[in-house]
């Protein structure tokens, strides 16, 4: 489903990713682990198509299409979803209005019919209760006044509504206490499906105890330096990034 081949990415004139190779099949969950500054977020942003993240070499093939040639909205319609590390607050836009607009744009983009207000509310309520969210939050402006956990849950709610083919979770565990982490991880797990792939980007092994990956890639210095099964994450937890001869600025 996703083939990243020899991907070089430059941000502000500086090369951050130096030739990444990674392939991900339908139904699989892969983890990308790495120390701070290794290029994890760059990988997430370049998959979602953020301005300023320039692919200078290599390619990203998603369902046979050249992802890099697509705008962020086209990627969303094609089924790419990025759960942000730092979800933005958008004062003045109500959560419900945003979710309905996004869902209907994505449905339009996929050739599906738009939902009317009643259908939308029904679907939204279903998903909100699955995630144990407070529906009142969605009447507020997007993410404004939300706690860290509420923001992350809101990201998972969007993922659940937009039903992506590929979900990229950028440090979804950051800033969460253990209870919030469990709720978010349960939400993510409930969205695992044979038709969907996930790329879980994280610094720590902690999240991977809840979202168990099929494969782990270690990213350091803009390169994948090791790959393995879920046990690789456990080994990393024990020995630290030093086992790969790299230093972790956060450690």
């Amino acid at each position: 489903m996703l083939e990243i081949k020899n991907l070089h990415v430059t941000v502000g004139g500086k090369e951050i990713l130096h030739g990444i190779n990674l392939s991900l099949d339908e139904g699989q969950v892969h983890a990308v682990m790495g120390p701070n500054g290794s290029g994890k977020s760059t990988l997430a942003y370049v998959l979602a198509g953020r301005d300023g993240y320039e692919v200078t070499r290599g390619e990203i093939v998603f369902d046979g299409k050249d992802l890099n040639a697509m705008t962020p909205e086209e990627r969303a319609h094609a089924g790419v979803f990025l759960a942000f590390q730092y979800p933005v607050e958008i004062p003045g836009v109500s959560g419900l209005n945003f979710l309905k607009s996004a869902l209907n744009e994505v449905r339009k983009g996929r050739g599906e019919s738009e939902l009317d207000a009643v259908e939308f509310l029904k679907l939204m309520r279903e998903r909100v209760s699955e995630l144990k969210m407070d529906e009142a939050l969605l009447k507020r402006p997007v993410n404004v006044g939300f706690s860290g956990g509420e923001k992350k849950r809101n990201e998972i709610l969007q993922m659940s509504l937009l039903e992506p083919r590929l979900a990229v979770l950028d440090e979804t565990d950051s800033g969460l206490d253990i209870d919030a982490l469990r709720i978010v991880a349960e939400g993510v797990n409930s969205l695992r499906s044979p038709k969907r792939a996930m790329l879980v980007i994280t610094h720590y092994q902690r999240l991977l105890s809840y979202i168990v990956p099929d494969k782990v890639h270690i990213l350091a210095g803009g390169k994948i330096i090791a790959e393995g099964g879920k046990e690789l994450a456990l080994e990393l937890e024990e020995k630290g990034y030093a086992m790969f001869g790299v230093t972790d600025e956060a450690a």
């Binding site: 953020r50 705008t71 909205e73 969303a76 933005v88 958008i90 607009s101 996004a102 744009e105 937009l162």
Partner: peptide, 14 residues
């Protein structure tokens, strides 16, 4: 730009 990217990443045309 961050808000704009967020909305576009959710499928809203620019």
């Amino acid at each position: 730009p961050a808000s704009l990217f967020f909305l576009r990443s959710r499928g809203l045309p620019e």
